[in-house]
Amino acid sequence: MLHWFNQKFLSPKLFYTTTTRLLPWVGGAFAVCFFYGLITGLFIAPADYQQGDGFRIMYVHVPSAFVAMAIYMTMACSAFVTLVWRVKMAAICMSCSASIGAWFTFLALVTGSIWGKPMWGAWWVWDARLTSVLILFFLYIGFIALQSVITDPQSRDRAGALLAIVGVINLPIIHYSVIWWNTLHQGPTISKFASPSIAPDMLYPLMAMILAFFLFYFWILMLRMRNQIVLREIKSQWVSEVMQHG
């Protein structure tokens, strides 16, 4: 049954042909969500009573942080599948996700620091949450670095998978130790701004943006995975057929 599933749905060829049809839909859905979120978020949602218009960077910051963490989870799940069932597509999904995740983490850090400057008065504070996102960024970098030095594709996949799993086991430990560290070293000089339960006018654009970022991730992931598949299967019959017929 598993073998059958592997053959039918996780074969690179079938993935390639399915995503050819799927890509425009995902891209279109992304565009709709993104522009809806952008327009309502930036122009229609009311200004925050404390932060004024400054809070609008939230519509980029929160989704990117959210997606950055979700991508690491995706990587860990596909790493598990790679190691246990040796599914080739899972390995491709994992290694293609890494750099997208790293960029989203970077985006979250940059937008967070731009947001922090007017609100907290500093570009960077060693707040627990910021620090653990920074460490997440380092974990991504380590994964990408490991993948870049190993030449043999199969052991590259498996080594990366093992590292991703070690990372995901450690992630909660790191997260809680960082929280603990910050509360120990200094009192709450920057209390997280009191957040009254967010108004629906602000919430809907945020949801749309989160959805849009996820769709963007899927979109880019599919494109990258298709490239990777073609690269890996360059010698097979179906690739040359696909390439000739567009």
Binding site: G142, I174, S177, W180
Partner: peptide
Amino acid sequence: PILIMPLYIPVLIFGTS
């Protein structure tokens, strides 16, 4: 160090604290 350093952070934090 790049691979392993992030994993060392909890030990460092608890050791120094």
